[in-house]
Write a protein that binds this DNA or RNA. Sequence first.
DNA 1: TTCCGATTGTGATGTATGTCACACAATCAC
DNA 2: GTGATTGTGTGACATACATCACAATCGGAA
Lengths: 200, 200
Amino acid sequence: MFLLICFLAILVFMNAKELLKDHISKTISLSEEEFEYVLSHFKEHYFTKGQTIISAGDKVNHEYFVAEGCLKSFYINEEVKMFILQFSMPNWWTSDFEALYSGGKAKINVDCITDATVLALSNEDREKLCREIHTVEHFFRWRTNKGYVATQKRLLSFMNNDTKHRYEELLALYPQLYNLVPKHLIAAYLGVSRETLSRL
Amino acid sequence: MFLLICFLAILVFMNAKELLKDHISKTISLSEEEFEYVLSHFKEHYFTKGQTIISAGDKVNHEYFVAEGCLKSFYINEEVKMFILQFSMPNWWTSDFEALYSGGKAKINVDCITDATVLALSNEDREKLCREIHTVEHFFRWRTNKGYVATQKRLLSFMNNDTKHRYEELLALYPQLYNLVPKHLIAAYLGVSRETLSRL
DNA sequence: TTCCGATTGTGATGTATGTCACACAATCAC
DNA sequence: GTGATTGTGTGACATACATCACAATCGGAA
């Protein structure tokens, strides 16, 4: 039984790192040795549905590559109202990047909508890898470029489109979300009350 | 007279590049030769109030470092309504980054709220410099990191705060804007009608 | 099974904001 | 200076949405 669990763990472990390897390969080329070296800095973590990865107030020292499952990153305001910044699906990265980059305390929370497998990379290791391997720095530059453009597009959509339009936009992009996450979370992503979404 | 104009042009030219040099120095260290090499890829441009730098539909091939003046980047929707993504002040970068990075046509416009001096860097030159000088790639990674965090903060503010709060937030950050740009542009940045802003 | 919490739908009502309309001032071109 | 364009303020009205309240359904725990 123990051996079986070890075997399954190794299987998933391989899959997660393979997924990350494929993801990185889409932007840069690395030798096998370099890949092995880079991937060795990522630590795999399992989380179960509902578990918290980052809480507001924490010191944030890692960013997370999602290999499996669905996470959400969200902000809770003074009136205890929740706003969802991002649903993180496989092949996405998540963290409280402001806190991670600046060294401050988290204002954003990250937790699991489903069971999840993630690969964690520390701030120090990311900077070390970027320093040591030029193309890795290139990879992270492009990852953020894409994130920047995506966030800007969402901001524009927020200003331009009404709720129904944004809802359809979201479902067109991630049809899985409709069955995967409760409606009140989708409402929190769209920035409307759950009642309004229900009456869409 | 001609000599005087040349002299003034060189003066401003020096100032713009010096500003960029200072800006870059805040993130990375470069030797004098490297600086000279990097800066040689930037072309200085003058624009007058109201002039257009990027029009929707254009092929976008440059990003711009603002040395002097104030630009706006904005989107016009089907109903000819304008949404301002960013006011670009000195030491900011602007472009339609989605189009620039993807090679597509511009969806964003950029024009001048005041007379402006900018330094233009082509997509190819940026990539070339990033390839040739590792620390330059580092610089651009951190520039985008900061932009990403700033845009995410603005998105959160959009969801969380009401118009008045966001207006005060904007003016606290850039008090100059109050006298520099007409109110209807500030309304377009805040995502409300000019009438609502007027009644704030 | 039974109960409880989580999720979702829907009605009634208040409020912030958009839209249309008009007025007036400031600026600019000629 | 004169007329046109641009920027700004304000009233009247319509509308989208938040909020509060209640009901119904579903799934898991005891």
